[in-house]
Simulated assay, not measured.
Amino acid sequence: MKKIILVLLITAFAWSCKNSKETNGKLQVVTTTTMITDLVENIGSDYIDVNGLMGSGVDPHLYKASEGDVNKLAQADVIFYGGLHLEGKLVEVFEKMASQNINTIAVSDALDVKTLIGSEYFASNYDPHIWFDVHNWEIITQFVVEKLTEANPEHQAVFEKNGADYLEKLKVLNENIKSVISTLPAEKRILVTAHDAFSYFGQAYGFEVIGLQGLSTATEAGVQDVQNLATFIIDKQVKSIFIESSVPKRTIEALQASVKSKGFDVQIGGTLYSDALGNAGTDEGTYIGMFTYNVNTIVKALR
């Protein structure tokens, strides 16, 4: 019922605001996750106004739209979201807006479905954490350039230039990631985290990845899940496990306690950024800074 009410509110508000936007001449863009916000800001720079719905540490799987979000969505010329049911509780809203010819774009549409990681445990049947393969983010960067150009063709040259500059930065990032990971022996490349957000990372960079919870943080880990993973950690002699910034740390702490009760000492290797970037204004508040921080944290703790 709440979702229906939210959709009706957005529809009514969008209709009433359609001809009364105060846009100061700039394209009004709304984004969902911090990763998408960072990307769109890099491409649009000063030629668009970007409103991100979610901030640092926010879990998109459980996010609920506020009244303020309704206002932002209604005022938007373009809306970029992750797709693949990443924003679980907003899916119906975006589908309804798309059916009303509102320019609502899932960045995951940029990717060939054959390259997606399947999962029988997630509503879309695909893992939505696509940003953890830099190659995916390169493809999505080009896609966002195209979509912003379609919405604002007079600034095509700016968007294409910014996109090209950002792609070069992503290329350097990918090279740096591989260089750091090369210092970690292959047998130590086992990444255990709070939920299953790092499968694209594991596939791209040669890690075995296991999340205590499923792909969505709405899925709770049971006692048997903890016990089974504790046994795995001991069998594989995993040195460190990791908390995630957008997931309560109690599940990983429970896993650590379970491992220690069996006579093996596993450390918490640090906090990784998974479904959200770090605080605005910090290195970790950008996609490139977040990825660099994560890789350095992982390799240092597992080495």
Rank of each mutant, 00 (worst) to 15 (best):
86 L>W: 05
97 M>H: 09
151 A>S: 15
172 V>C: 03
139 I>H: 01
193 T>A: 03
188 K>D: 05
188 K>Y: 07
104 T>L: 00
84 L>Q: 01
183 T>E: 07
190 I>G: 00
132 F>E: 03
138 E>N: 04
116 L>T: 14
194 A>V: 14
192 V>R: 04
163 G>M: 08
63 Y>I: 13
123 A>N: 13
121 Y>I: 12
192 V>G: 01
88 G>H: 11
81 Y>T: 06
185 P>W: 04
105 I>A: 00
97 M>V: 14
154 E>S: 15
116 L>D: 10
171 K>I: 08
189 R>Y: 10
71 N>P: 02
88 G>V: 14
178 K>F: 09
171 K>A: 06
109 D>P: 09
137 W>V: 06
164 A>K: 15
56 S>T: 14
142 Q>S: 11
151 A>W: 09
185 P>L: 00
192 V>P: 07
143 F>H: 13
104 T>Q: 01
191 L>I: 10
117 I>M: 03
50 V>G: 03
182 S>K: 10
76 A>N: 07
193 T>F: 01
88 G>K: 07
171 K>V: 13
126 Y>K: 04
65 A>G: 11
188 K>C: 03
74 A>I: 10
118 G>A: 10
170 L>N: 09
191 L>V: 12
96 K>R: 10
186 A>T: 13
84 L>N: 05
157 A>L: 13
75 Q>H: 11
63 Y>D: 04
138 E>H: 02
81 Y>D: 00
149 T>H: 04
149 T>R: 03
90 L>Y: 08
143 F>M: 04
152 N>I: 09
83 G>D: 04
77 D>S: 11
126 Y>M: 00
78 V>A: 00
48 I>R: 02
133 D>V: 10
139 I>E: 05
161 K>S: 11
58 V>P: 02
95 E>Q: 12
175 E>K: 08
185 P>G: 00
168 E>Q: 14
87 E>N: 06
81 Y>R: 01
90 L>E: 07
154 E>T: 15
61 H>D: 08
58 V>I: 14
191 L>Y: 09
180 V>Q: 11
143 F>N: 04
185 P>T: 07
162 N>V: 15
74 A>D: 07
90 L>S: 05
181 I>M: 03
70 V>E: 01
81 Y>K: 01
84 L>D: 02
188 K>L: 03
87 E>T: 13
114 K>I: 02
55 G>I: 12
49 D>W: 03
52 G>L: 08
178 K>W: 05
137 W>I: 04
73 L>E: 05
133 D>E: 08
158 V>K: 12
119 S>I: 15
56 S>F: 12
98 A>D: 12
97 M>P: 11
90 L>R: 06
145 V>A: 01
109 D>K: 14
55 G>A: 02
81 Y>S: 01
69 D>S: 04
143 F>R: 07
62 L>M: 12
173 L>G: 03
189 R>L: 03
193 T>W: 03
59 D>T: 12
95 E>W: 07
127 D>L: 05
100 Q>E: 13
192 V>Q: 02
71 N>M: 04
73 L>C: 09
137 W>K: 01
157 A>H: 13
156 Q>V: 13
98 A>R: 15
77 D>L: 12
